[in-house]
Amino acid sequence: MSVLVFVEGLNGEIKKSSLEAASYGSQVAQAMGTSATAVAIGEVHEEALARLGEQGISKVLYDADDRLKQFVADAYVKVIAKAAQQESSKVLVFSNSNIGAAVGSKLAVRLNGSLATNVTELPKMDGGNFTVTRGVFSGKAFAQVNLTSDVKIIAVKKNSTEIISNAGNTATVEKLSADLAESDFAAAPKETVMQETDGGVLLPEAEIVVSGGRGMKGPENWHLIEELAKELGAATACSKPVSDIGWRPHHEHVGQTGITVSPNLYIAVGISGAIQHLAGVNSSKVIVVINKDPEAPFFKAADYGIVGDALEVVPKLIEAAKALDK
């Protein structure tokens, strides 16, 4: 009956979003009076798996099948379903990533379960109801949803759960084998290409994001955004108009029809704050807006603001960031 958490690896370590899912899962387990088990797939160091004890995980099931190094939905689903069966799990927790939500959707069909993605809070369990809160209307609202099936599958929105860290606790690591067939790999990718981050931070995992809009006046000024991001340990992003005119690649576009981010700090430089852009960033914890137009709508959604020309303000911020004790 343990709560089962699917954790994703990146370069041998556990992704931050999966540490959040593990923390979420162990809190649900505690509320239900049971333990939390994690299932890991692919290339993750055993020490990193054992360290999941710090997030309250007691046991990790690990399938080290070489073919699972890259994401193949059908094979991943089979491994997780096997773990769920072995643990008799009724609650499954994922990160709301492209991988987590995909696998969660398929498992919902296979296990006849209730699925909630984009979940922002721990569930309320009372009177036989199991109710989660999830983000809807592109960040403009939340919905409270009863998961009515016996099996409940939750995909947790990034950066909405504090990571628990009970230093020194370790989880036991057990091997798991799901007896995968060749046919489970029919839709395996031909090729996987990771972005060159240039030593920088990946946007979906970033705790700080520096984002530029048309107020940057041209791609030749983007080094300012990159430099400030580098000083702050941030990822870079941009507004839709900027990616539409080709100053920046599409995968950096943040907003309603781009990437949704929810970092601790979002710094918007030269972005006016159209409602579609706000939808992609409004669950950021702290928002800073730099814009030369004091009437820019973004200021209404901001915590801190500077009215001024981006090209004059950003160098001052870089200078101040350099002076910080790191």
């Binding site: 890259q70 990533s97 395996a188 990718p189 031909k190 090729e191 996987t192 290409v193 972005q195 990946l202």
Partner: peptide, 8 residues
Amino acid sequence: IEGGKEVV
């Protein structure tokens, strides 16, 4: 995919 792309 997070941080990259896959060709399928």
